[in-house]
Amino acid sequence: MEMVFIAAALIIGLGALGAGIGFGLLGGKLLESTARQPEMANQLQTKTFIMAGLLDAVPMIGVGIAMYLIFVVAG
């Protein structure tokens, strides 16, 4: 039973780690690029928004599976 909780913790933790690193890089690059070319700010914001959607797809599905493990398999 404990293994299920460890598995859920790994899924959520590693998903959050990946998403955190990705969002940090994304936000940092957005600020850097906007400082270089402020006239491109709108396009860069749109691209960041689209990339954010792609970036968090796997962690979001991971959260769903982890909740299933915690509340249905272990519960």
């Binding site: 968090d56 979001m60 959260v63 909740m67 915690i70």
Partner: peptide
């Protein structure tokens, strides 16, 4: 992400 986790739970 927090909202998604809460909704699933």
């Amino acid at each position: 992400i927090a909202l998604t986790a809460v909704f699933f739970a």
